[in-house]
Design a protein around this nucleic acid. Structure first.
Lengths: 119, 119
DNA sequence: TTGACGCATGCCGATATAGGTATATGTTTG
DNA sequence: CAAACATATACCTATATCGGCATGCGTCAA
């Protein structure tokens, strides 16, 4: 067999440091490929390839702007990663159960406040 | 070059589904290799190999028990993963800033409560 | 239209992987 | 000591990856 494709899911796509850097760079807002090339100091083809992987797993969206292509982050696929990792949070954070309780209370408070829970 | 080694960090180690399953199984407590073989339905050598990877990145600890080896989860290395992913949480969870505030309040509350904040 | 620009893609090579099967190492039992 | 048990490791093969380099394709400017 071999390792699972990097485009299999967010877990695999994000295992590559450069791709994480790309997402971090895009966290500030839309950027063109050329911008990323400068920011990360990578060759243009490599950036395009990493973007392709990120695009295939849905971590970024593209938009055409003249002869440039503006990329944007889409965190949705990371939700699964976050969900899985969070289950282990208590293993390194003793206080987590406390936060857990608070989240519970928060949920209930919102429920009681009803749909009209303006800030 | 090629892909980074699976033993490079938690990101790479955890990208493999089987290894995540192993960690999930160990979440309930110590287990011997044989137990994991049964639980996951994998061949024994494969389980041992996956455990080796997890061990190299520090995600599991081993303990000898007669002719068996008991493995145990160590979530510490996942902290980095959690930290990175969490920064994107607000991208899919509109309410995150709310939780953010609550965490802040919690921290302050604890500080005020002092060291004697028993359950 | 020609040329410059911006980006995507194709090809190449080296490498680590994951599963399969066989076997080595260490431990308990008789 | 020998046999059974539990786990680790060695070897093998197919495969996808990542980087480097060249090139294809669409877009804007003169």
């Amino acid at each position: 067999m071999a390792r699972a494709a990097t485009t299999t899911d967010a877990f695999n796509a994000v295992a590559e440091p450069r791709r994480r850097e790309i997402l971090d760079a895009l966290a500030g807002g839309e950027l063109a490929v050329g911008d990323l090339v400068e920011l990360l100091g990578l060759a243009q083809p490599q950036v395009s390839k990493h973007l392709r992987v990120l695009r295939e797993v849905g971590l970024v969206d593209v938009r055409d702007d003249g002869r440039r292509r503006l990329y944007r982050v889409n965190g949705a696929p990371l939700r699964a990663v976050h969900a899985w990792v969070s289950r282990y949070e208590r293993l390194w954070n003793e206080r987590f159960d406390l936060v857990d309780d608070v989240l519970d209370e928060l949920t209930q408070a919102e429920a009681q406040a009803g749909p009209d829970e303006g800030d």
